[in-house]
Deep mutational scan, measured.
Amino acid sequence: TGEEYIAVGDFTAQQVGDLTFKKGEILLAIEKKPDGWWIAKDAKGNEGLVPRTYLEPYS
């Protein structure tokens, strides 16, 4: 299990392996990579890379 984050903006996948999401979606951070791209999972179970700058902790 990971930590929940809320998307603060829309993001469209730029390449294969990225995860597209919309502002307000809750994402589960699976792995926090030091380069600023995290592996996350959305509510539908889709998994991919997301930019850290689009996420804020969800409580």
Rank of each mutant, 00 (worst) to 15 (best):
K22H: 09
Q15P: 03
V16W: 10
G17P: 03
K33F: 12
I6N: 01
Q14D: 07
P51R: 07
D35N: 12
D42K: 01
I6V: 10
Q14P: 05
G24Y: 05
Y5V: 03
W37V: 07
E47D: 06
P34M: 10
T53M: 12
L55H: 01
E47V: 15
T1V: 14
E4D: 06
G48S: 02
E3W: 12
G36F: 05
G24V: 01
Y5E: 01
V8S: 07
F21L: 05
A43T: 12
G9I: 14
G48M: 01
K32C: 06
W37S: 05
D10V: 02
I30Y: 05
Y58W: 12
P57Q: 08
Y5R: 01
F21W: 01
G24T: 02
V8K: 10
I30D: 00
E25H: 07
L28T: 13
E25Y: 05
I30F: 06
T1D: 13
P34L: 11
R52D: 13
D18Q: 15
Q15S: 13
P51Y: 13
T12W: 11
K32D: 03
I26P: 02
G17V: 04
T1F: 13
K23E: 07
T53Q: 14
I39S: 06
D10A: 07
T53K: 14
L19V: 02
W37D: 04
I30M: 09
E4G: 07
V8P: 01
K44P: 03
I6L: 08
K44V: 09
S59Y: 13
W37Q: 06
I39V: 13
I39K: 09
Y5A: 00
N46V: 09
V50D: 02
E56P: 02
V16T: 11
V16F: 11
G48F: 03
G36N: 06
S59P: 12
T12I: 12
Y58C: 08
K32E: 07
D18V: 15
A43R: 12
G17E: 06
N46G: 07
E31A: 11
P51C: 12
G36W: 03
Q14M: 12
F21Y: 03
L49F: 14
G17H: 06
P34Y: 10
G9D: 14
I26M: 07
I30V: 10
V50M: 01
L55K: 01
L27K: 00
I39E: 03
A29S: 06
E56I: 13
A29G: 03
E56N: 07
K23Q: 08
G45C: 06
A13F: 03
A7N: 01
Q15Y: 09
K32F: 08
S59T: 13
L49M: 11
T12N: 10
G36M: 06
G2H: 14
V8A: 06
W38D: 01
R52Y: 15
K33I: 06
L27S: 00
E31P: 03
K23F: 07
G17D: 05
I39F: 11
Y54Q: 08
K41H: 07
F21A: 02
V8H: 05
D18M: 15
L28K: 10
D10E: 06
F11S: 02
L28N: 07
V50S: 01
I26E: 01
I26G: 01
L19P: 01
Y5M: 06
T53Y: 12
L55Q: 00
Y58I: 11
T20A: 10
R52C: 15
A43V: 10
D10N: 09
R52M: 15
P57E: 09
E25F: 04
V50E: 02
Y58T: 08
W37C: 09
Y54L: 15
R52Q: 15
L27N: 00
A13I: 03
K32N: 04
G45R: 02
E47N: 07
L19M: 06
W37R: 08
D42G: 03
G9F: 15
D35Y: 06
W37Y: 08
G9P: 01
A7T: 10
T1H: 14
D18H: 15
I26C: 06
D10W: 05
K22S: 08
I26V: 10
E56M: 13
W37H: 06
G9M: 15
A40Y: 04
G17W: 06
L49A: 09
T12E: 11
G36D: 07
Y54W: 09
L28E: 07
I39G: 03
K41S: 08
S59R: 12
Q14T: 13
G24K: 02
A7H: 00
E56Q: 12
I6A: 04
Q15M: 11
F21G: 01
E47Y: 14
Y5P: 00
G2W: 15
Y54E: 08
Q15C: 13
D42I: 02
E56C: 12
F21E: 01
F21V: 09
V16Y: 11
E47P: 04
K41M: 12
G2Y: 15
K33P: 06
L19R: 02
G36L: 05
D42R: 00
I30L: 12
P51W: 10
T53L: 12
I30Q: 04
A29C: 15
A43G: 10
L49G: 07
K33Y: 10
F21M: 05
A29I: 15
G24A: 03
V16M: 11
Q15N: 14
G9K: 15
Y54V: 07
Y5T: 00
F21K: 00
R52W: 14
A43K: 11
K44N: 13
V50G: 02
T20E: 07
A29D: 00
I39R: 10
L49D: 04
A7E: 01
Y54C: 10
G48Q: 01
E4M: 15
Q14E: 10
L19C: 03
A40V: 15
V50C: 06
A7S: 07
Y5D: 01
W38H: 01
E25Q: 13
T20P: 10
A29K: 03
G45V: 00
L49V: 08
E4Y: 15
L49T: 13
D35M: 04
L28M: 11
A43D: 09
L28G: 03
T53C: 14
K44Y: 14
N46C: 08
D18R: 12
F21R: 00
T1N: 13
T20F: 04
V16G: 09
K41F: 05
N46F: 08
S59A: 12
K33V: 06
E31R: 10
T12V: 11
T1M: 13
G2V: 12
K32L: 07
